[in-house]
């Protein structure tokens, strides 16, 4: 069967069988795994990503280097990306969510506390509630745009296909979900506790640092970087339609012209606007344009760290580019 599917046998019937199999299976996988299971299984939601595998909980630095070396050898012009129009959560949302994996005990205790507190707002299902709680935390940082959160929750609930679905929407459940989200977001006590948690663990600043780290890897690892619109600065978007909102290109262009030649300290002072990320992308892309061979993947070389925090480093001499 394996040989048949890999078109190792000649013949019209064999070819058609293989083609039909290839046409059907991606759609089955996408609907079954990415568009259903990924909305039910809310362990660490940043892993529930298109093309990802929630069973793979992190990677070692060695595995990352091995992957890059293979890419440099086999697919040096492959597309690299962190966010697309189809990602469930933008790269910056995932960077921030990933921080929680480092403080599992604190996170668990906070989620239990919030779940108990918000019980008064009537949650209907524990799995959906976990998703709601973590999403509420993220969406809060987006200035609490209730409409965006409600749209996300409705889609997530329908995709999960447990209490409501696209084919058979259950209005009563969706109304209750909307009501729950609105009440939670309006709960001053919860909001205060949430903000305290975010502040205590410096999640905003560290999320930005992680964003810059993965952006550097995007720009310098073997392959060709692809930037989704609006991700030139911090971008905290959920699944579509949230990630297909209009982008204020005028604002991005102004910001770029203002920081292009600015002192680094001035760029860093405008962190809230996303200036450090835009500045980093601009610098690395300009280098790429000036000297494409520098990023040509031809001599990728991992660098070795040592010392107390060695496990916190990923060093790569991507063609003499240490990052």
């Amino acid at each position: 069967m394996g040989d048949l599917l890999l078109v190792q046998y000649e013949g019209a019937n064999e070819a058609e069988f293989s083609a039909r199999f290839q046409q059907v299976t991606p759609a089955v996988m996408a609907k079954g795994v990415e568009d259903t299971a990924f909305y039910r299984y809310n362990r660490l939601v940043s892993l529930n990503e298109v093309g990802g595998d929630p069973g793979l909980f992190g990677r070692s630095v060695e595995a990352f280097h091995a992957h890059c070396l293979k890419t440099a050898e086999k697919w040096p012009a492959t597309m690299l990306t962190l966010s697309t129009h189809d990602t469930k959560r933008s790269g910056d949302v995932r960077a921030r969510t990933n921080l929680l994996s480092e403080i599992p005990a604190e996170w668990e205790s906070a989620v239990r506390r919030w779940a108990e507190h918000n019980e008064r707002h009537r949650a209907q299902d524990s799995q959906t509630e976990t998703s709601n709680t973590s999403c509420t935390r993220r969406c809060r940082s987006l200035a609490g745009r209730r409409a965006r959160l409600v749209a996300f929750l409705q889609k997530a609930a329908r995709e999960a296909n447990v209490h409501t679905s696209w084919i058979n929407p259950v209005q009563a459940f969706e109304d209750a979900l909307t009501q729950f989200a609105g009440s939670v977001m309006a709960d001053a006590e919860f909001k205060s506790d949430l903000e305290s948690f975010i502040g205590r663990h410096q999640l905003v600043a560290l999320g930005r640092l992680a964003s810059l780290a993965q952006t550097t890897l995007l720009m310098t690892s073997p392959g060709v970087p692809d930037l989704y619109q609006g991700t030139e600065v911090w971008n905290l978007s959920l699944v579509d339609p949230d990630n297909r909102r209009p982008v204020d290109f005028g604002r991005l262009a102004s910001l770029l012209s203002e920081i292009r030649s600015a002192e680094l300290s001035d760029v860093m002072a405008r962190a809230d606007e996303g200036a450090p990320k835009l500045w980093l992308i601009n610098r690395l892309l300009e280098q790429r344009r000036t000297d494409p061979e520098l990023f040509g993947s031809s001599s990728y070389m991992p660098l070795t760290a040592s010392g107390a925090k060695a496990r916190h480093t990923v060093g790569l001499s991507a063609i003499a580019c240490w990052s």
Binding site: E102, A210, A213, T216, H312
Partner: peptide, 9 residues
Amino acid sequence: MPRLVVGLG
């Protein structure tokens, strides 16, 4: 390149 930035502190 930092990773696991919470633990890095």
